[in-house]
Simulated scan of single mutants.
Amino acid sequence: MCVVCFVRALAHVFRAYLAAQYAYDFRGWPVAFRWDDARAGGGGRGALTCAAAAAGVWLLRGAALGEAGPGRPPRGARSQAQCLLRQIRELPGQLASYALARSLGRWLVYPGSTFLMTRALLPLLQQGQERLVARYQGRRAKLLACDGNEVDTMFMDRRRRPGSRGRRLVICCEGNAGFYEMGCLAAPLEAGYSVLGWNHPGFGGSTGAPFPQHDANAMDVVVKHKPELA
């Protein structure tokens, strides 16, 4: 009898998992907004050209290009030999840091982006989406960042509610193991604000990995999408 009950329970869980996976599959959705969309407002320091898109948004470009920082002498004050020696000395540590950050480090710092946690939370994420749509008329949309990653977002428009809070848009950024489906956006929603939730690269329906440049690129397209909603 116990074996029969176990098999039935396992079949029920398997069916629920398949249904949640089918409903949660975000890959086939069309892109609602691109990082270079003309409706983003255009111009300004944050605007990217096609040539600069692969390198990422400007806010992290300085460190990526090795520009002068605290404690480092200006580029012109260093000879080519000194630069080469410095690069050679730093190379082993950089390689070790790179390998550690993209293996064990990612699992420890961003457990929400791992395959096992995403699959384990899939039914809960689906329930969270259904709650946001049913209770707050949430609108899910796919945004395309400049690095090609797709960003999973959900917007709750509260502007038609009485009072002035609904005219203010709160963009919620979840933590290293959080998803907008079950994250911190509940607080501003209960307070009556309009809310835009999004998942970091590698979290939920968002593609990519939660590395700093990918995160910056995702934030860039999310903020550009804001004028469309506000």
Rank of each mutant, 00 (worst) to 15 (best):
H214N: 13
F33Q: 09
A134S: 11
R61M: 10
L85N: 13
E130P: 05
A186W: 01
A19K: 12
N199R: 01
N149G: 04
N149A: 06
K224W: 06
G148W: 03
R34D: 02
R102G: 07
V195L: 04
R72T: 15
M154V: 09
G46E: 11
R158T: 09
R86Y: 07
A38P: 15
E190S: 12
D25H: 08
G44P: 04
N149M: 04
R86C: 10
F179N: 00
D36S: 10
R78A: 09
G166Q: 02
R39N: 02
V3K: 11
M219P: 05
R89T: 10
L132Y: 07
S164C: 08
E130M: 13
E150N: 07
H214V: 05
G192M: 04
D215H: 12
V57D: 11
G178S: 13
Q94W: 11
L48G: 11
Q126W: 13
G56E: 03
V13P: 05
F179R: 04
R15G: 09
T118A: 10
P210C: 07
L100H: 08
A99N: 04
L108V: 14
A216L: 13
Q87G: 14
E90I: 10
A77V: 08
Y110F: 15
V223F: 04
A209R: 13
A134C: 11
A209D: 05
N149D: 04
G148C: 04
R78P: 07
C5N: 11
A145G: 00
N199M: 01
V13C: 14
A40P: 01
A19D: 14
L91T: 15
L229S: 05
L124W: 12
V221T: 06
F179I: 01
M182K: 01
K142M: 12
G163E: 05
